[in-house]
Design a protein around this nucleic acid. Structure first.
Lengths: 215, 215
DNA sequence: AAATAATCGATAATATTTTATCTATTGCCA
DNA sequence: TGGCAATAGATAAAATATTATCGATTATTT
């Protein structure tokens, strides 16, 4: 019996893998055949050991003195990250940020396909954003169920985020990409990834202040 | 001699503090006087001990059986995060994302004041975005110097990000908030905070795939 | 063909972050 | 007023992530 179900993969590694993938694409375009951890680490200012450990999660092995096969490794990372079989997603909140995200063609190459947009502003409903028709919130739940959508993206104002999340979860959404600054109150079974610009900005300004204090 | 210069503050704590601040504002609006770690932890699904440790960096102390004074604690966090003395910043790249960021009034309450926008598209130069006139890239360096700007925000396409970063650094920028997926190659002295949606998305989809495999 | 140097992969050590334990304080209630 | 319960704060333990060490492998050079 194969009981390997959870050789847990460190989240920091998962966050770094997309970087490596980007670099590997560059190398592939340059028709480079192989690349070493030292090269990759040099590119990003990491340590070679860390890169090697990150890459190990893909199961690909390298050759001493040579490194890894660029194409093989790139394919393995893309597979690992699920970039080769796109998941459909619904986005709610056709404001500025929402519209920006809908327009990102690149998400398709990252395994995400935004298929519909929802908003409760009657002026927006019916309009198209990057070729995507805006639907009323009223249809959100039933369409999630009917289309078996698993990923929801929330870009609504703070006040309505929880309400939208509840509709999503009740309809069967399994993962939420939340761009709203408030944290959502959800069952543990639902996966949530929060994009919090305020946290990112705080890290930046905090480091800056440290530096200004002790130059 | 006071050699305490670096009682290093964990970055994870810095990332959580803005959450607490948001909650404390809510409590303040509700005219609540005090709050315990247990309350805060409950709100976010953290452990009380972790919250207590995070709050400790502000130097504020609480009272057993009561907790912390809401106003005092909020003020301390805001001070700690530098939200009470705004830094001026330049943003480069008046595309979709850039325009979205410029429009975020809320940044002001997070200690960031976007004072000018730059773009190399002649059609955009001279236009206004959220009341902010778009200036040509040619003026970027000299204005950074003249106005002693310390924070730069990069929302240009991948290809030009490094070039813009170089201009910024040469002109004296000390910290860069980078929204471009490529990592920038910069001197160690420059602070960089990368917002990488691809990493965030990868974490989400990776967890989702894990869950679909072992439900 | 042997020596060399670069690199991988495994294992071990270190550092960081999270979680637990314990004591002391304080308000509340009997 | 005395005991109880909730909580802070300090210290310790555990978990996690990063960095170092070391032996094995393989292309390259001599």
């Amino acid at each position: 019996m194969n009981q390997r179900q959870s050789i847990r993969i460190p989240e920091p590694s998962v966050r770094r893998l997309p970087l490596y993938a980007g670099f590997l694409r560059e190398l592939k375009d340059q028709e480079k055949d192989s690349v070493s951890c030292t090269d990759i680490a040099g590119k990003f200012g990491f340590l070679p050991i860390q890169v090697r450990k990150d890459l190990a999660v893909t199961g690909i092995t390298g050759k001493p003195k040579i490194g890894y096969q660029v194409e093989e490794l790139l394919k393995a990372i893309e597979d690992f990250l699920g970039w080769n079989n796109c998941e459909d997603a619904f986005l709610v909140g056709a404001g500025n940020l929402g519209s920006t995200l809908i327009g990102y063609e690149k998400f398709k190459t990252l395994g995400l396909n935004i298929v519909s947009v929802f908003d409760d502003n009657p002026r927006k409903v019916g309009k198209k954003i990057s070729g995507c028709e805006v639907l009323p919130i009223g249809k959100l739940g039933s369409l999630i169920e009917r289309m078996h959508i698993k990923i929801g993206i929330i870009t609504v104002p703070m006040e309505s985020a929880q309400e939208i999340a509840d509709i999503m979860v009740n309809a069967g959404i399994m993962a939420i990409w939340n761009f709203c600054p408030t944290l959502l109150n959800l069952p543990d079974s639902v996966i949530v990834e929060n994009v919090r610009l305020s946290s990112s900005l705080s890290v930046l300004t905090n480091k800056l202040r440290e530096k200004l204090k002790n130059p």
